[in-house]
Write a protein that binds this DNA or RNA. Structure first.
Length: 169
DNA sequence: AGGCGAGTGAGGA
DNA sequence: TCCTCACTCGCCT
């Protein structure tokens, strides 16, 4: 089973790809989704995904998550993605901290790669991972998205944004 | 402060 | 195997 849902948001139309196990992929509006829908999208999954996505885009913590299929990744990547799901909206971690969290201190660089391989950005909050000393690092879908999401979450959480203006400690 | 080089673990070819 | 990273840390301007 494989199907695609269009999810309209204030930031454009996202594409969500589902398989038997749940949500397997999410793509940003400017990335054309190349998967052909072959089955009807389970209404429940589509609803939950859309709701969760819109919450995160507003900088808030979704109260319901759709079922996620992370099985496409290697064991290490899955550990990293699960660790990312533990980060609350409005907070950030460094690549090194995630590495420690998954029991591989020193694997910060590998964590960065796992983030880049994340098939479900936004919902699996790879944007909340920064380089050491709160430097922005990278983002596969474009840094503008990373900045946008972090700015929304910082605002929603009432926190001063530690980047953009002077990064003074 | 900012740039550079080396050490680093995991993935992909 | 070898090479490439969304990293880090320590030196050296």
């Amino acid at each position: 089973m494989k199907c695609v849902a269009r999810i309209e948001t204030g930031d454009g139309v996202f594409s969500a790809v589902f398989n038997d196990n749940g949500l397997a992929e999410l793509s940003f509006p400017d990335r054309a989704c190349k998967v052909q829908p072959t089955d009807a999208v389970p209404k429940e999954w589509e609803k939950e995904t859309a709701a969760a996505l819109k919450r995160v885009l507003r900088g808030e913590q979704p109260e319901v998550f759709p079922r996620l299929d992370l099985s496409r990744g290697t064991p290490f990547q899955q550990k990293v993605w699960r660790a990312l799901l533990e980060i609350p909206a409005g907070e950030t971690r460094s690549y090194g901290e995630i590495a420690v969290a998954v029991g591989e201190p020193g694997a910060a660089r590998a964590v960065g790669m796992a983030c880049g391989a994340n098939p479900i950005p936004v919902l699996v909050p790879c944007h909340r991972v920064l380089a050491a000393h709160k430097k922005l690092g990278g983002f596969s879908a474009g840094l503008k998205w990373k900045r946008l999401l972090l700015a929304r979450e910082a605002t929603a959480a009432g926190i001063e944004l530690p980047m953009g203006d002077s990064v003074a400690a």
